[in-house]
Each structure stands twice: as structure tokens, then as C-alpha cells.
């Protein structure tokens, strides 16, 4: 998975702990978005024709195409379902999350 990762972070406790200028660098994620999801996209790799439409249409960029098979970054997928809706061969199923 080649996607930005969550970093550990401690909030500054005192005024003197704050740096001058920006507090943190860019690409600074401290929390995931997985809790937003009601439905989870699951790719059926046997049906997938590797057209990469899902990679293109994902507003969160959560579909990674670097590996041999497409992979969903479930830390940042919000379960909007655009990938499943746009898939030309219906190879993505939205499955209800069970808590």
C-alpha cells in the first residue's frame, strides 16, 4: 500500500512547546476516517478487468494501483460507493460494516 500513513502526535502542553511558525509539516495525518463508513467496498478480483475506473473516480484516493491487485486503503475509505456505482463489470460490492 503506497498511501500517506497516520503519524503519532502529542499535543503541545505548554506555550513554550509550540514551535515558531508552522506547528507541523504537510502530509500530517493523526486520525483515520474508517469510522465514517457504513458500507465497505470489497473488490472481486476474479471479475475485475483492471480498467482502473475505481482508482480514477475515488474522491479519497483510497484505491491503490501499485500492487498486482487493486487494494483499498480501509483506513481512509469513507464507503461512499462511487467505485461500486461506476464499476463497468460490477466487480465491487458494498457490504454493510458490522461493529
Amino acid at each position: 500500500m503506497k498511501r500517506p500513513q497516520v503519524k503519532s502526535w502529542e499535543y503541545p502542553r505548554r506555550v513554550q512547546d509550540f514551535p515558531l511558525g508552522s506547528t507541523c509539516d504537510s502530509d500530517h495525518l493523526v486520525s483515520i476516517n474508517a469510522g465514517w463508513r457504513t458500507f465497505r467496498p470489497v473488490i472481486d478480483h476474479d471479475r475485475c478487468i483492471d480498467c482502473l475506473k475505481c482508482f480514477l473516480v475515488c474522491p479519497d484516493g483510497a484505491i491503490d494501483k501499485s500492487g498486482p491487485l487493486l487494494a483499498v486503503d480501509y483506513d481512509f475509505c469513507k464507503g461512499c460507493g462511487i467505485c461500486a456505482h461506476e464499476c463497468p463489470v460490477k466487480a465491487i460490492e458494498m457490504i454493510k460494516e458490522v461493529k
Binding site: 503506497k2 500517506p4 483515520i32 480498467c51 482502473l52 482508482f55 481512509f76 469513507k78
Partner: peptide, 18 residues
Amino acid sequence: AKTLHNEEYFYGHKACGG
């Protein structure tokens, strides 16, 4: 989709799903 690279420069944002 094929020629576009795999790097993301806007990632992990808190916009609404979809």
C-alpha cells in the same frame, strides 16, 4: 486512469463521503 501515477498529494481529508 492507466497513465496517471499512483501518488496522492491530497489525502486523508475530512470531506463528506462522495
